[in-house]
Amino acid sequence: MPREVGRQYKEILKKYIDSQSEEDLYVGQQFSRRFIEKQIAPEDVISIHKTALLELLPDLRDEVWISMDFLIEMMIHYGLTLREHQSLIRKQEILQMEMNVATKVQDTLLQTTSPNVKGLDVGWVSQPAHQMNGDYVYFLNENQHVASVAVADVMGKGIPAALCMSMIKFGMDGLEKGDTDPRAVLDIINRIVEKSVDNSMFISMFYGKYDARSSTFSYSSAGHEPALYFNAASGTFMELNAKGLLLGIKTDVVYEEHAVQMQDGDFIAMMTDGVTETRTEEGFIESESIQQLLESVRDQSAQKMAEHLYNELAGLQEYRLGDDFTIVIFKKNPEEV
């Protein structure tokens, strides 16, 4: 086959030497693709050129042929580098495929279902900035009256973060019934995480539990952004702060637990720092802006509210998120009779 390529190359070269026209040059350019397709190395291209020239213009001075041999030597390293480059591309394609598989596994492994509790409307959006999400939302629906949610942000991105999340998920799946008070949950997860992660890895987590029988929302936080509680009657927001250290730093952490009683129309927005640290050209977004955005759609469903906030804030960043973005909204609706 190289001989065939060599023969064709000679024809094209001859035409160009005779005409020196743009068209024949263009034919040559097109032909160079065949070199690439057939993976002919740069030094072999020079070789083919030399052979063609020997047949077309055998009377050239010896110095020309000697210089051609010199050029062939020069090109050998280009050839090697090119082959390395091609093999890297192939490796990268394989890695990319593995990443795609890992992302699918992550999605399947970590999927969660919105809880179904009378009088509670739940909406959420969790959007990764890159391929794998470092934020994690997990719902527990203990019984028909109780719905809980964990909103977590794993420091570090990509695969280590994803592995860490599986740990959280299985930790929560293993919670025994009756032991699901927020402070107890964080304590258990902290023990699991602390044993298993390296020094510079940690997780922030907000855990909230809504009990429809008393309409109370109790919560604890492990170093996480405070949630926002909207009181519909007064039309005001309040930060739900609870002291507690990040997960995975040390054992025996005391997590505070607090509770609010929700009335119809009240809602609680739990977010990760991808929301509160939204950065635009003018600087960081203020907490008040987030509150205004939420309040402006307070009459809509929790899902619509979450989507509205996402669309507005992602829009501000021209849909190039700087960090993973997660918001979960628990909204109390009048119970249907």
């Binding site: 420091m155 570090g156 020094n199 510079s200 890895m201 922030s204 720092d273």
Partner: peptide
């Protein structure tokens, strides 16, 4: 500083 930076300080503190 973002959470990656925080991670550096946490790692340093622990070590």
């Amino acid at each position: 500083m973002d959470s990656t930076g925080l991670g550096v300080f946490v790692g340093f503190y622990k070590a």
